[in-house]
């Protein structure tokens, strides 16, 4: 096995090894290997139903793995923004009150978190009245007020328009820079995430490819999953090329050799294809 992010240093926050979740006789996800280190942003992408949220729940401990192991550093403090959060209308919950949902924080800390995510003016608003983007910012503020070691953000830009999306991703990168927490970010689309992300994991029932954003965008697994158009959108983020994918699927290596896609080995590769023979 040649996983790139396998080193078990003291700054590894969570390590998932060969984990899978089975429900009602069906594998929601399997063969997941990943680790998140302090200060690292890991972005997980994949189509609907590919097991992204399930994997996030494995990492946070909400779900227990049916096989494999998930080890969290002891005393790991997690901040979690789930994908779906419907708060019943009958609960009077202001943004300010939301901040102290799972812990006790002073007015200064609350003001600081709301300030950082740009929702200070909404402190007294009821969460049920917020727009999609405002709500996501409030949830992000709630997660970061915990000063977590690990932030798990499940589609944090849903319901946010494009410029808001960019701003939100900038904010997430900023949180990482300032607090040096590890971040697991789940996204259904890759192209805005790229800038701040250290590692991309492409999921489709199993880990289908992984590596730096540039290398994943060029990987054949990614292309077959998302199509060539998705790759074009990523062109702007490709900084260095050690090889080029030719239109006919072959690969032009940096040293000038032309090889077939299947012969070409990505540096980032940790393909765990043992999940394929279960169908």
């Amino acid at each position: 096995m040649n996983f790139v992010e396998a080193p078990r240093g003291h700054d590894v926050l969570v390590d998932v090894a060969g984990a899978g979740v089975k429900r009602d006789g069906r594998w929601l996800v399997e063969g997941v290997d990943l680790s998140i280190r302090r200060g690292e942003i890991v972005t997980m992408i994949g189509p609907n139903g590919s097991g992204k949220s399930t994997t996030a729940k494995l990492v946070t401990g909400v779900l227990k793995p049916s096989v494999g192991t998930v080890s969290r550093r002891t005393g790991l403090r997690v901040g979690y923004v789930p994908q779906k959060l419907a708060i019943d209308w009958t609960m009077p919950l202001t943004v300010r009150r939301l901040m102290t949902l799972t812990g006790r924080y002073g007015p200064g800390e609350i003001a600081g978190a709301l300030e950082a995510t740009g929702v200070s003016h909404l402190a007294e608003a009821e969460v049920q009245h917020l727009s999609g983007g405002e709500f996501q910012r409030a949830l992000l503020a709630r997660a970061m007020i915990r000063k977590p070691d690990l932030l798990v953000l499940d589609e944090p830009v849903q319901g946010v328009d494009f410029s808001g999306e960019v701003a939100l991703y900038d904010l997430i990168g900023q949180i990482r820079d300032e607090t040096q927490c590890g971040i697991l970010l789940i996204s259904h689309d890759l192209h805005v995430v790229m800038a701040a992300t250290d590692t991309v994991i492409c999921l489709n029932g199993h880990v289908c490819c992984r590596g730096s954003p540039e290398s994943v965008a060029r990987s054949p697994e990614y292309l077959s999953l998302f199509g060539a158009r998705a790759a074009n959108a990523l062109a702007v983020y490709q900084h260095h090329h050690d090889h080029t994918h030719l239109p006919d699927g072959r690969v032009l290596e940096a040293d000038g050799r032309v090889v077939g896609a299947h012969e070409h080995v990505h540096e980032h590769e940790g393909h765990s294809h043992h999940g394929h023979d279960h169908a």
Binding site: T60, Y80, I87, L93, L101, T102
Partner: peptide
């Protein structure tokens, strides 16, 4: 009160954050 309310708002958040 706090764990009850947190679990009511969202059980996953409560669980992920140590409740």
């Amino acid at each position: 009160w706090r764990p009850l309310l947190a679990a009511t708002v969202n059980a996953d958040i409560a669980e992920a954050e140590g409740m």
